[in-house]
Amino acid sequence: MTSLPTALPASAGGTKLGLVIDLDICVGCHACAVNCKEWNTSGHSAPLTDWNAYSADAEEDGDEGAWGVWFNRIHTYEAGDGADARTVHFPRSCLHCETPDCVTVCPTGASYKRAEDGIVLVNADLCIGCKLCSWACPYGAREYDKTEGVMKKCTLCVDKIYNENLEEIDRVPACVSTCPVGARHFGDLGDPDSDVSQLVAERAGYELMPEMGYKPVNRYLPPRPRRDKAEDIGMPERLADLAQRVPAGETTSGASGLLGWLDTMLSR
């Protein structure tokens, strides 16, 4: 149903599932992006088509390089100027917004949001491939499969997170279970007591482009401030400049001084 559903209340078992991504520790390794592709190319939205995969049919494709459908993409930005600039790795996938136009603009009802958990999906049997939903997504999260003629997108691994053929512990999105640094968290952002909600509260997790009014569910944890001053690690001032602290007699003039402080050291 294209018009947005009224979310199933928590009391009735309704959830608001989403991802929390920690920009402070993401090293930009692309593991989540590739593992996402690997899971999904044989999953609910199979296949995640690639074009010109081996640069053999560039002519008909207009790109010398391989390109294809990915649900999760890792960008790297530099924020600031010169040596103080921060390099920030930035994974980007569907944010499963609460009030997304990508759903309401769809003429067929193929693009829909689930009432029970808020996951935004595309019904591939219904989609006419008009692409309007992708125009309506501010986050560039939708990817059109021109070979299949339908729109595809992050499914929040809907075929994994509830999958009874998998062990309980494996029922998390592929991108989350594979992230080597543990920068990706999955859970119910509707429940203020959930681990993810707690994390967002502690770390001041934020929404992307709130000005769009789509109310994204996914949250990003900001990079922590740099710690390149002595006090940042609680180092007492007296240590701040070691050289000032060479005790009397402990000159730098080799052995004599050396002997001096060696004894004091050892007799400590």
């Binding site: 009802g109 049997d125 075929d159 509830y162 053929n165």
Partner: peptide, 13 residues
């Protein structure tokens, strides 16, 4: 008609 999709959330992997 607004067709509602029924997603198989437990396909055999």
């Amino acid at each position: 008609e607004t067709v509602v999709e029924t997603v198989d959330t437990s396909p055999t992997v």
